[in-house]
Structures are given as structure tokens and as C-alpha cells.
């Protein structure tokens, strides 16, 4: 009994799910709703593990979550194609829109599977804070040091903050305005001025300064100058 994954045949045990066959053979399928901590719980709720069933005469092309799809002889599926990618991306975007954005205070920032996937699926709206291990009191903002991480694109694995320096924003300002406002609130709470945040952001994101300015004004965030 064989199943075809991405054009290659693999044997399987009766009752196995497609996800497990793929995992056994080192084929990466992302999941969010179950993980190594509770591998047996499969709510099939996140739909990140979708794969495409290829039309083989018996099955119509269809997207199925691989964690619940039983392996069957002759079944052909694809784990990596544009349809699958787009579906997963949409799933992630929806999840992200509901997701708590407070990466700065989150217990898993710096090692966040969700953030990693968002980067892999090129979703805008993930800040350097999600990759930064300096949480709460360890955060530069809590220590009165201006760090641009809260409004800067992730993707560098927070190299500077991991190595003891604040983020200088070299991956440029995020374009997701909701997340930007959230980041700006962090500067506001920690008493930074508009002037210093804008000046710092200007170095690598000159064109985004107007957006930041507008968001500060619309949301009445950050003071013009900080009185010493």
C-alpha cells in the first residue's frame, strides 16, 4: 500500500493519517493547533496542515487537513503548491487578525512558531518583538532605551536585541497599520517623544515617516517633545 506525496511514493500502516506519513518521511507540514506538547490532541481547528488531493479519477482536487485525512492506497497529495500556499497564508492571516499582538510581554516571543510561520508565508504585521527574547523588564523600552523593534519588520531573528543592542529598524517600518499603532502605543507608554521615534525611524524608512506621523496624530499617541 502506497501513497504519493509530492510525486514520490511512500508506504504506510493502515489507519495512519497523511500528516503522520509525511512527518515520518521528513516532509514538513506546518501545524498550529497541535504540537509536540500535546501531540495526541487533534482538534483539526487551525487548518494550517492543509494539503491538496490531486485528481486521480477517484478523488476530485480538494483541500483537506492532513492531520485528519486517512492515508489510502493510491492517494496522491501535494503539500507544496500555490493553492496550498495561498490557503495556508489566508488561514494565517485570519488567525493573526484575532491574535494577541502583545509580543513584548508574551512568554514565547523569541521562540514563536506563529511568528516563524508568518514570516515563512510572507505575512506583513509581524514585528521584531515577536523574535526578540527580551521580554517585559528586559525590553529596551522598559529600560528607557529607544528600540525600533515594535514597529519594524521581523525577519532578522532580532539579531541586534539578542546581542544586547536596540533595534535600529534596518528591516524597515511595517506596513500593517494596526500593528504599527500597537507598536506606537508601546513608545507612548514608555514616554518616548514623537520627535525621537520619527528621527530614528527616518534613517532606514524615510518614506514611512509620514505614515507614522499620521498614525501618531490620529491616535493621539506620543508627545511632541519630552520634557526633561
Amino acid at each position: 500500500m502506497n501513497i504519493i506525496i509530492d510525486g514520490k511514493e511512500y508506504g504506510f500502516e493502515p489507519g495512519q493519517k497523511v500528516y503522520d506519513v509525511a512527518e515520518e518521511n521528513g516532509i514538513d507540514i506546518p501545524t498550529l493547533c497541535f504540537n509536540e506538547l500535546n501531540p495526541d490532541e487533534r482538534p483539526a481547528g487551525c487548518r494550517m496542515c492543509v494539503v491538496e488531493i490531486i485528481d486521480d479519477g477517484n478523488n476530485e482536487p480538494n483541500l483537506e487537513s492532513s492531520c485528519t485525512l486517512p492515508a489510502s492506497d493510491g492517494l496522491e497529495i501535494s503539500t507544496k503548491n500555490k493553492v496550498v500556499y495561498d490557503e495556508r497564508r489566508e488561514v494565517l492571516e485570519l488567525l493573526l487578525s484575532e491574535h494577541e499582538q502583545d509580543c513584548r510581554n508574551c512568554g514565547i516571543s523569541g521562540d514563536c512558531h506563529f511568528a516563524d510561520l508568518s514570516l515563512e508565508y510572507d505575512i506583513d504585521g509581524v514585528s521584531v518583538c515577536s523574535e526578540c527574547p527580551n521580554r517585559k523588564d528586559g525590553c529596551f523600552l522598559s529600560r528607557d532605551v529607544l528600540c525600533l523593534g515594535a514597529i519594524t519588520h521581523a525577519g532578522c531573528d532580532a539579531f541586534c536585541t539578542r546581542n544586547g543592542d536596540p533595534c535600529e529598524g534596518c528591516f524597515s517600518v511595517l506596513s500593517n497599520e494596526d500593528v504599527l499603532v500597537f507598536g506606537l502605543e508601546a513608545y507612548d507608554e514608555n514616554g518616548f517623544s514623537r520627535k525621537e521615534v520619527l528621527e530614528s525611524a527616518k534613517v532606514f524608512s524615510y518614506e514611512d515617516v509620514e505614515v507614522l506621523k499620521r498614525l501618531m496624530e490620529e491616535n493621539d499617541l506620543l508627545k511632541e517633545e519630552v520634557s526633561e
Binding site: F159, C160, G164, E168, C170
Partner: peptide
């Protein structure tokens, strides 16, 4: 310098770390 290229720790007056 904290980084192989484009040093991060060199600042006016010394080192940030």
C-alpha cells in the same frame, strides 16, 4: 561589534556593549 558587517556597538564615547 555585535555584527560581522555594519557594527552595532561602536557609539560616540565608547561601546554600547
Amino acid at each position: 561589534c555585535g555584527r560581522t558587517t555594519h557594527p552595532r556597538r561602536l557609539i560616540p564615547g565608547g561601546f554600547s556593549k
